[in-house]
Simulated assay, not measured.
Amino acid sequence: MGFDPRDWPSGRSPSRPITGNLDALLQENAALKQEVLRLRRLLDRYERLEREPRATTAKPQWLSQSEAAHWARQLMQQPGWSQLRAGDEGHGLMGLIAHLNRSSFLPHLSLEQRLDRLAPGLGRDLQQALDGLSSKQQLALRAAFAVYGVSAREWLADESRRVVAELRQQCQRLEQRRRSPGAGAHSRQAQTANEAPPGPPPGSDPRRAAAYQQLGLAWGASRDAIKKAHRRLVKQHHPDVGGEAEAFRRVNDAYQLLMA
């Protein structure tokens, strides 16, 4: 039994008895103690986590210095390697890289920057992996990535003979263009005029417009149409079936830009 404490200040004797549930109060008190202990354990856990060094998420590495050195050695052993020249901005491997960069959809970017757009971190890893190689070896690997794009890793690993042959052919074509620049430009303009699909609306992204044109599609074509055009042109221009690696690269670049 208990009493009503409201009667106590008046000096009157308790007149309204109440029932005090002691067991319920004890149970509630025990539950509160358990909750305090749980919160203390949780706080201790968070404090330990804060004191421990946090693990950083490692970014995937596209290629290493050892891989680049291995690819360079493989290229040097192939027929035609001695005929490749480092060159300058107008010819040779350096000229080929500059030409392919100018003809890409992002001509204002360097090769490494364009590779980073296609596969984040690839251009950075390529630049770091080339340390320690000779100038010609560096240019050959960079030219391979300029020609084949992201798939250059597979080509360098499995088809080094084809890579050297392709680089030689590309350098020879570049030299022919330098000797007669008007003929190639005229033929390309005529082909574009005859085969170009309807143009994009005013104010549209010129890079996407060029990508649609490269795939032979009208502006705003569906993703299914882009995939079908890409499959058709890849089969047509793949070097394994006699196509040009430069055209193959342009098709892949256009596809990746439109599907991004």
Rank of each mutant, 00 (worst) to 15 (best):
A218V: 08
R12W: 00
W71E: 00
P181N: 10
G243Y: 07
V147Y: 01
G182T: 10
A129G: 07
L22F: 04
P201Y: 04
A225Q: 15
F248D: 03
K33E: 04
R51V: 00
P206W: 15
A190Y: 00
R249N: 14
G149D: 03
P9Q: 07
L258V: 02
E52S: 04
P14W: 05
L22S: 10
L43S: 12
W62E: 01
R40N: 13
H186I: 11
S180I: 09
P198T: 11
Y46H: 09
R85D: 07
A165V: 07
E67C: 00
E47T: 07
L49H: 03
D240L: 10
D116L: 03
E166Y: 01
W71I: 10
L118P: 00
E195Y: 01
R250E: 15
R178Q: 15
G92P: 02
S204P: 08
L96F: 09
L115F: 05
P206Y: 13
A68H: 03
R177M: 08
R73N: 12
H238M: 00
R45Q: 12
Q191V: 09
L84E: 11
R162Y: 03
S82T: 11
S15N: 04
Q169Y: 06
W62H: 14
L37R: 12
A211P: 04
R179D: 02
S104K: 01
Q77R: 13
R179L: 11
R249W: 12
L39F: 02
Q128Y: 11
D253L: 14
L42A: 10
Y255E: 13
Y148L: 06
S110Y: 00
L217I: 02
N29L: 12
